[in-house]
Nucleic acid binder design. Structure first.
Lengths: 152, 152
DNA sequence: GGTGAAAGCTAGCCGGC
DNA sequence: GCCGGCTAGCTTTCACC
């Protein structure tokens, strides 16, 4: 996947523009980076094939799909055998409310980001799903007061 | 922005497919949701105009653009006057390494996600930029051992 | 970097619920 | 009136030079 050819200035410009608008037409993109369409398309294809451009996504308003509330959770677990770890990880990863899930160095053991409709839905998730897992020792939920910046 | 018309089943399917591939052609999308192109396009336009679809982004491999290392940082600050808060927030938000920045309820005061090339770059960021800010009382960096799940 | 055939986009109009 | 489907002209894509 990792490309041997490092990105030149034009590649970086292409990435910059496609990050802002993934549906740019190739001709418009070419105009912005100072190329004509065919060489521009070849570069884009190369970036896609080398994995630099991993895909394209529509950005959806979380509110509109019932995911307006994000909660960050620090998790401590009981140190157990390998099987318990694996079970805990696969169960949590399968929860649709979980949008990010990392095992951390030091403390906490795991970091989870959950997206739900509202506080009632979060309470239901915490009580009905997460806190009942045998591996869970301690959960600490962190609520956002204000999002100052997200994504590049 | 908030649409009065709630999303029906087809709208949800359109969102589902465009979340997976934001460059789907309209005819292909129409085929998948069981419509012909024109009504499908009208729905997409409506979703865009109502803000449900907020935009389209290319997904870039962080490694390829020198952003392979993500660190999560808990920040505690000295409680100060409004001006200090605002200054701290605008300075941190302006750092290009900072990709997520939230003010939290309770502790920590702020949550920062940073994306840098490697550990040396992180050390430089921490020493040269973040820890020197007068408002900063305590920083706690959290490193990921394993990413088990990201995004929907 | 340019060219041209094939594919896709999208406006206008029509028909069924 | 609302929503889907059809036609048709314009734009974009992309293999070939």
């Amino acid at each position: 996947m990792s490309n041997e050819t490092p990105l030149d200035a034009i590649d970086r410009e292409i990435i910059f523009h496609l990050r802002q608008d993934g549906r740019l037409t190739n001709v418009e993109l070419a105009k912005r980076v100072g190329l004509t369409a065919p060489p521009c398309l070849r570069r884009v294809k190369r970036l896609e094939e080398s994995g630099v451009i991993a895909g394209y996504r529509a950005v959806i308003d979380p509110e509109a799909v019932g995911r307006g509330l994000e909660v960050l959770i620090d998790v401590e677990i009981y140190a157990q055998d390998r099987k318990s770890f694996e079970e805990f990880e696969s169960i949590v990863a399968a929860f649709e409310e979980v949008v990010e899930f990392r095992r951390m160095y030091g403390r906490p053991d795991y970091f989870i980001r959950v997206a739900v409709a509202d506080h009632a839905a979060y309470e239901a998730f915490l009580t009905g799903r997460l806190s009942g897992l045998p591996a869970v020792r301690r959960l600490e939920s962190h609520l956002t007061m204000k999002t100052i910046k997200t994504s590049p």
